[in-house]
């Protein structure tokens, strides 16, 4: 009722902002999302930190003050100061520079996992939701199997089999984080399956793949993006945990979790070895959580 009224209100002033092409219409709606995103201060903070991570990773060589891997034993375990903003580690490497280069590794892991997990989850979820029956049963039982292992344990087992390394860590994390996405996409698809607009394209003779790709996936996309953003925090933590256990990125790569792991031996005397990468991990995962929350408020069709 209230919604109806507001729609009649907008009807009156519509003519001035009528888009005249698909591109313009798309631009207008994405501009709206961006505007809403910036309006909420928490979301804005999350967005800024995420952007900062990307900028730092992209311009690492220019931002870093020292080489992240060159050792200088004479300079080991320096406290934070003018020469080394965040101090140095046990090999005399500049922690600030290692943090900056570590952003690259973090971003690499997030990006790779997301690129693997998003499409797999979407594909399995929408296909099993749309077709139902045997396909659904098979896909969902496989998902159940993956979901029933604690993710870190599954990742550990996988790395134990393949050997430690950054790429293996990425695959291991991806392996454990697609099932929630698939379930989410399936639930969305089930609710869309009988929607009139899906039936309408079926009645136009559209093929199943066309219906899934062009009509169902776009509707699932926003909730999947929200979920992926929220997952990024978990991915960062899992990657750090694997690094901490020595199973992720290998020395001398400046991975944040590995930095904490090696730093903990000197933790009591040199707090900065652990606190600085720890704070970075916390900040970035918090930022992605905030961003995900904000995106949910804006994109989720149910909250409109």
């Amino acid at each position: 009722m209230i919604a109806n009224m507001s729609s009649t209100e907008t009807a009156a002033k519509r003519p001035q902002d009528t888009p005249s092409s698909s591109l313009e219409a798309l631009g207008k709606s994405s501009l709206r999302v961006l505007r809403l995103l910036v309006r909420n201060p928490m979301t804005l903070a999350g967005l800024l930190v995420a952007l900062l991570l990307i900028v730092v990773a992209a311009f690492a060589p220019w931002i870093a003050t020292h080489d992240p891997v060159v050792q200088n034993l004479a300079n080991a375990l320096q406290a934070p100061g003018a020469a080394h903003w965040f101090g140095t580690d046990e090999y005399g490497r500049d922690i600030f520079s290692r943090l900056v280069y570590g952003a690259r590794i973090t971003l690499y892991i997030i990006a790779l996992v997301t690129i693997i997990v998003g499409p797999i989850g979407l594909f399995i979820g929408t296909v099993s939701g749309y077709f139902g029956g045997v396909i659904d049963t098979v896909f969902m039982r496989i998902t159940d199997i993956f979901i029933s292992f604690p993710s870190l344990v599954l990742a550990l087992a996988f790395i134990a089999a393949l050997g430690p390394g950054l790429e293996h860590a990425v695959v291991a994390i991806a392996l454990t984080s697609w099932p929630p996405i698939a379930r989410l996409a399936r639930a969305e698809t089930l609710s869309l399956r009988k929607a009139d607009f899906v039936v309408a394209v079926e009645l136009q003779g559209a093929s199943s793949s066309r219906i899934i790709l062009r009509h169902i996936v776009p509707m699932c996309l926003s909730s999947v993006i929200i979920r992926l953003t929220m997952n990024m925090a978990g991915i960062i933590l899992t990657a750090a945990a694997l690094g901490f256990l020595g199973l992720g990125a290998q020395a001398p790569l400046p991975e944040w979790g590995a930095m904490i792991s090696t730093g903990r031996r000197y933790m009591l005397e040199c707090w900065w070895l652990v606190a600085v990468p720890g704070a970075a991990i916390m900040l970035v995962s918090l930022a992605f959580n905030l961003l995900g929350d904000g995106l949910r408020d804006i994109l989720d069709p149910r909250s409109e």
Partner: peptide
């Protein structure tokens, strides 16, 4: 009609 404010 809908939007006339009757329910309100």
């Amino acid at each position: 009609e809908s939007g006339s404010g009757k329910s309100t």
